Amino acid sequence: MTSMPTRRLGRDGPEVSALGLGCMSYMQPGEEGGRAAVGTIQAALDAGFTLLDTADFYGSGVSEMNVGQAIRGRREQAFLSVKFGVQASPTRGIIGLDGRPNSVKNFAAYSLRRLGVDVIDLYQPARADPEVSYEETIGAVADLIQEGKVRYLGVSEVGADLLRRAHAVHPVTALEIEYSLACRFIEAEILPTARELGVGIVPYRILADGLLTGAAPQDTHFRVPRMQGENYARNRETAKALDEMAAAKGVTPAQLAIAWVLSRGDDIVPLIGVSRPSRIADNMAALAIALTAAERAELDRAFAPDAIVGARYPEAVLKWAAT
């Protein structure tokens, strides 16, 4: 198996694994689902993953409990990134946001208990609550840092303006945001701003919901426009450039897509999702893939910022996302 290198998370942040583990899928209730989740997380830790990314609303706390069980007795191996602030219905639908300072501190108290830890390494509002001053939300996290309950401030799905506003309250260590060959909107303003401020980038959805791998659209709690109907057919035509290059290099499209994100800068730590331990080595193989300048240029041409059609979220969710 390819060994796991490290990258610094932000200019003044800690060193973490070059790939992070997204823990959204580890929220199946019940004893069997918990065992599978814990086993996969522990296998990832064994393979060198340190950055574990979860949220209090993933399965209404189930993901956090599984992560907590997985790191029991090995806390020092894990860098815990936790998102908060999304209000979810019993059917997992997003029904709102809550960035009020007292709510932030309440969320943190419950996350600390579910994770079984004394401190959260990176704490971040999942979205900016439009009804609350972003400075107030960030200030509550700064208070938690002062109290020793949080180590670093993160932000998620915000544009350049909110990133600057957050950084003015307290130094931001990392920005979690969607970034992939199929979704490159951050390159215009958000990525340069993050680099100016010394903020690391933690990309998620780096396979664009399976669009870059040819996976069939999945029925989830919302329908992604870029994965529907004519949009999906056209986008898969675009993605053939990735398929062909991957075949020529003897790797999978997923591995090549991960390698492309890794190649965008040493300040980028992408999140991957792993459904079972046997998939860990496949994903880590991307770390050994080198892209030539000509290959990068070819992918840049094929996946120009406007090449993928259809929004990355439905309108009801997109209103809370960065643009």
Rank of each mutant, 00 (worst) to 15 (best):
A248I: 08
A194W: 08
G93D: 14
L318G: 01
T137Q: 07
A37Y: 07
A286E: 10
K149S: 00
L207Y: 02
F303V: 00
A78T: 08
D143C: 00
R75C: 01
I145A: 08
A47P: 05
A288L: 06
R7P: 03
L80P: 03
G85L: 13
G61L: 13
T91S: 14
L271V: 14
D266T: 14
I272W: 01
S81N: 12
R296P: 02
G48H: 03
R100G: 01
K319A: 13
R234M: 01
I177F: 10
T137V: 02
S133M: 09
S81V: 04
E237C: 02
K149I: 00
F79W: 05
P101H: 13
G73E: 01
S275Y: 04
D46Y: 00
Q124N: 04
K240Y: 09
E244L: 02
E178W: 04
A254G: 14
P29M: 11
L191M: 06
R223T: 15
V141K: 04
R226I: 00
K249A: 03
G214Q: 11
R234C: 02
A194E: 07
D12V: 03
R223S: 14
Y232N: 13
I201K: 09
Y232A: 13
L207C: 00
E131K: 14
R127Y: 12
T6F: 10
Y26A: 09
T91L: 12
E244W: 03
P29G: 11
M284W: 13
I190D: 10
T292R: 05
A294Y: 07
G33S: 12
P125K: 15
R279I: 03
F57R: 12
T6M: 08
Q28P: 00
L211N: 07
G159S: 08
R127Q: 15
S278Q: 10
L212H: 04
A307Q: 06
Y58T: 07
D282S: 13
R100Y: 00
K105S: 08
